[in-house]
Computed example of a mutant assay.
Amino acid sequence: MMQKLKKPESFTLRIVLKIDSSKGKKSEIIKSLQAARIQCCSDKVRPVLVASTVIPSANGVIWAGVFSSQNQEDPENSALALYDISNVRGQVKGFCAYSGNCDSESGSELQPLSVVFKYSSVSAVAATRIESWIVLFIGTSDGQLIKLMSDEKYTPGCPIMLYKSDDERAVLPRMHFDPVDFKHIYIALKKQLRRVSVVPCAKYSTLKDCRAALDPLCGWCVNTLRCSTQDEC
């Protein structure tokens, strides 16, 4: 559970709350409450949460958040960071079990596993996991849709631009994968809805380029001698 509270002077407090719903009694569920504050990032303060998504994972719960310092003239105004929120252990003032001391804090800061992308105006994020890879789709306020791969150590690769709006319309926060054809994602812009391909395998014309792309959705097909998805081979 993610709780976002507004505090004075335009500061946003971001809290992750965790409870054990398997407990038999309501009082036991409340007593299991754990909380942590999310921080981003070490280079500068980015207090505003712009967008977020949960990434499927067999070993935990990875959460991706876009944070902004609200300075559009800064080329690194916004940052996309990854967090492991599966093992929240701590207490934040005002967020504790009714029998606890709600005025104290312990182990309350959750630091990012990795800051994978910085840009002047990130406005949306969606993600999926393919084996050990995390594939991120990043929308921007100047109308771009960017694809970014992160390996098992949460090290990002090179960003790939999948779409660019002609008139720089902002990509709105909600993005959805096509439930029938995962090869596409729906993005919303002002007065527009776009269906964009997320597997540009055909742009890699050689085996070297296909492998160098490090795109888990693409591979070299020895039958057709071209870069393609597995089901196309």
Rank of each mutant, 00 (worst) to 15 (best):
T155S: 01
R37L: 11
I185S: 13
L80K: 06
L207P: 04
C233N: 10
D167K: 13
Q3P: 00
Y98S: 09
S108R: 14
W63Q: 12
I62Y: 05
I134L: 09
V116C: 14
C218I: 05
S78G: 07
A127W: 03
R89T: 15
I55T: 02
L207G: 01
C221D: 13
D142A: 04
I85A: 10
V222C: 03
P173I: 09
K7W: 05
Q111C: 12
S86V: 09
E105H: 04
N77C: 10
P112A: 11
S106R: 08
N101T: 11
L162Y: 10
A79R: 08
S123Y: 03
P200S: 01
R211I: 11
D209R: 13
S86G: 10
V125S: 05
D181G: 01
D84R: 08
S150I: 02
V16E: 07
S132E: 10
A170G: 08
E232I: 05
V116T: 15
A64S: 10
F182C: 04
S69I: 05
S121T: 11
D74T: 03
S69A: 10
K4E: 15
S52K: 11
Q144T: 10
D151Y: 00
A36I: 00
R89E: 13
C158L: 12
G107Y: 04
K25L: 11
D74C: 02
D231W: 02
D103S: 13
A127Q: 03
H184Y: 13
P156S: 04
S10Q: 13
L49R: 15
S228G: 03
A58S: 15
S197Y: 01
S141P: 03
L172Y: 07
S104Y: 00
P216M: 09
R195W: 01
S106V: 06
V115W: 00
A212V: 07
S69Y: 08
D178E: 06
I185R: 11
C201A: 00
S78F: 04
P216Y: 11
V61F: 01
T128P: 01
A213N: 09
Q3L: 12
Q192F: 07
K203Y: 06
I85M: 09
M175D: 06
G139R: 12
F11M: 09
L5P: 01
H184W: 03
V54S: 13
C227L: 02
S132M: 06
D209C: 02
V115T: 14
R226Y: 03
G219C: 03
